[in-house]
C-alpha cells in the first residue's frame, strides 16, 4: 500500500497526469467548441484516429514531423467538414453520421495501413517522426515543479494554452457570441441575419482542429507509431469530460484532468503488478463516481434553495 501512495505522490506521477490528459483535453475542447453551437460532435473519436494515422504517414514520407502534424490536423478537419456536410446540407441524423464516420475512420486507417506498410496492426515498420519535447527555461530548474511542468511534449503545452484561447473565443469574441446564440436559439440568430449553417460549419471545423491536434499527439508524441484503433475511446472520454465541465473551457479542462489522473493511476498500479484488466477499468469507474457526485451536488443545491425559500416564507408569514 505504501508503495502505491509513494508512487502516486511522486513528481513523475503528476508529470504523467499532464501527459495522458493531453489527448483527452484536446478532445474535450473539440467537444466544447461544437457543443456551444448546438452540435454534438460524436465523431471526435474517428477524427482523432484519422489525424493520428495521417500524421505518421505524411511525416514518414516527407521526413518532417511538422508537415506530418499539419497533414494529420488537415485530415481531421476534412472529416469534420464531411460530418458538417452530411448533417447540415444532406440533413442526415447527426449521431448516425458521427457513428458512420467513426467506423469509416477505424476501417479505412487499418486498410491504408496495410496498403502502405504491409502490417495490419501497427506502423512500426514505417520510419516516422515525432514532435519534440520542450524544456521551459526557468521553471525547469525549480525542484519538483520543474519535474512536473517542464520537458513536456510541445502539444501538451499547446493543449493547455488552448484552454484559455477557447475560453476567450467563446466568451469574448463576436464569433463566440454567435456560436452561443446559434446553440441556444438558432431562430434568434437567424432573425438578425446570422447564417446558422455557417456558424455550425465553423464550429465543427474548429472542433475538428482540436481533435486533429489530439490525434497527432497520440501517434507523434505519446508513442511514435500508429496502431489500429489507438484512440481507444479517448474521443468519447473527451465528450464525457466536456459534459462534466459544462459550457466552460476551464470546466472541460478539469474534467479532462480527472480522467487523466484516473488513467495515470491505472498505469501506476499496473507497474506494481495489479492486473491490467482491473486497472483498465479505473478511468470508467472514475467517470461513474464523478457523475454521481455531480448529480448529488446538483440535487443538494436544489434542496438548499427549497429550504431557503420555505424558511423565507415562514418568516414572511
Amino acid at each position: 500500500m505504501n508503495e502505491v501512495i509513494k508512487s502516486i505522490l511522486s513528481a513523475q506521477f503528476f508529470y504523467s497526469v499532464l501527459r495522458v490528459t493531453t489527448p483527452v483535453l484536446f478532445a474535450a475542447l473539440g467537444a466544447l467548441l461544437s457543443d456551444v453551437a448546438g452540435v454534438i460532435n460524436i465523431a471526435l473519436e474517428g477524427l482523432m484516429l484519422m489525424s493520428a494515422f495521417w500524421g505518421v504517414m505524411v511525416s514518414a514520407w516527407t521526413g518532417s514531423a511538422w508537415i506530418g502534424l499539419l497533414a494529420g490536423v488537415a485530415s481531421a478537419v476534412l472529416l469534420s467538414l464531411a460530418l458538417a456536410y452530411f448533417h447540415l446540407n444532406l440533413k442526415t441524423d447527426l449521431i448516425l453520421a458521427g457513428i458512420a464516420l467513426n467506423m469509416f475512420a477505424s476501417g479505412s486507417t487499418v486498410f491504408l495501413l496495410y496498403l502502405f506498410s504491409g502490417d495490419k496492426g501497427s506502423s512500426s515498420s514505417v520510419k516516422s517522426y515525432v514532435l519534440p519535447n520542450v524544456d521551459i527555461p526557468g521553471i525547469k530548474n525549480i525542484p519538483i515543479l520543474g519535474d512536473i511542468l517542464s520537458g513536456h511534449h510541445v502539444l501538451t503545452y499547446i493543449a493547455f494554452l488552448s484552454v484559455f484561447v477557447v475560453q476567450y473565443l467563446i466568451y469574448k469574441t463576436p464569433l463566440g457570441l454567435r456560436m452561443r446564440a446559434v446553440g441556444e436559439n438558432p431562430n434568434a440568430a437567424q432573425s438578425v441575419g446570422i447564417s446558422v449553417k455557417r456558424i455550425k460549419y465553423t464550429s465543427l471545423v474548429l472542433s475538428g482542429l482540436m481533435a486533429g491536434l489530439g490525434g497527432a499527439f497520440l501517434s507523434m508524441g505519446y508513442v511514435s507509431w500508429f496502431a489500429r484503433d489507438m484512440t481507444n475511446g479517448r474521443g468519447f472520454i473527451g465528450l464525457a469530460a466536456q459534459a462534466l465541465g459544462g459550457k466552460s473551457a476551464y470546466g472541460s479542462m478539469w474534467g479532462a484532468l480527472l480522467f487523466g489522473a484516473a488513467e495515470a493511476t491505472s498505469y501506476t498500479l499496473q507497474a506494481i503488478r495489479i492486473p491490467s484488466e482491473f486497472t483498465n477499468m479505473l478511468p470508467f469507474i472514475f467517470t461513474i463516481i464523478a457523475l454521481i457526485i455531480y448529480a448529488r451536488a446538483k440535487i443538494m443545491q436544489i434542496k438548499k434553495i427549497r429550504e431557503k425559500q420555505t424558511s423565507h416564507e415562514e418568516v414572511g408569514l
Binding site: P174, L177, R180, A181, E184, N185, A188, A189, V192
Partner: peptide, 17 residues
C-alpha cells in the same frame, strides 16, 4: 427570438457586435 442566457445588450447587438 431571444437567447435567454445572454444579456439584453448582447441580444440586441448580436450579429453586429
Amino acid at each position: 427570438m431571444l437567447v435567454p442566457s445572454l444579456t439584453v445588450a448582447e441580444n440586441i447587438v448580436l450579429g453586429m457586435e
